[in-house]
Simulated scan of single mutants.
Amino acid sequence: MSKCPRCSNSEISEMDNYCRICGLNLKGEAAAGTAAILEEQLQLLETRKRRVEMRITDPEARQRILAALEARCCSVRSLLQQI
């Protein structure tokens, strides 16, 4: 986990059990909640990719947008693997 899901504190490490800013338990339920949020983000990104494929007619613009969305999908998948 690279940042707190509650307050977005980025100064936490894998060794921390609690966020130093808001006190959120970073293990257990917090990790499960974070995973659920990331899964939802991934689903939304996949939906956006499908919409772009259907609606954007300019091939270059479509490819740029799809590449950006795929990069974000990769980032979210990476975060999911860290949980």
Rank of each mutant, 00 (worst) to 15 (best):
E39R: 14
S10T: 12
Y18S: 01
Y18L: 00
R62L: 07
S2N: 15
A67L: 07
C73N: 05
S13C: 06
T57L: 14
C7F: 05
S13H: 05
T34V: 02
E60I: 13
S10C: 03
N25T: 06
M15W: 09
I37Y: 06
C73M: 15
A30Y: 04
L42V: 07
M1K: 02
I56E: 14
I37N: 04
D16V: 03
K49H: 00
L80E: 05
A68P: 02
R51T: 10
Q63R: 14
E40W: 09
S78K: 09
K49I: 09
G28D: 03
R51M: 12
A35G: 03
A67T: 15
L42F: 10
Q41L: 12
C73K: 14
E14R: 13
R50C: 00
I65T: 12
T57Y: 11
N25G: 01
A67N: 14
I83F: 11
R62N: 01
R77N: 06
Q43R: 15
I12S: 05
S13E: 09
C73P: 03
R62C: 06
V52T: 11
Q63N: 11
E29P: 02
A35C: 04
C4R: 07
K27Y: 01
R77P: 03
L66M: 10
D16W: 00
L44M: 12
C4S: 05
A30E: 00
I65M: 12
D16F: 05
C19M: 09
T47K: 15
P59Y: 12
D16C: 03
A30G: 15
P59A: 13
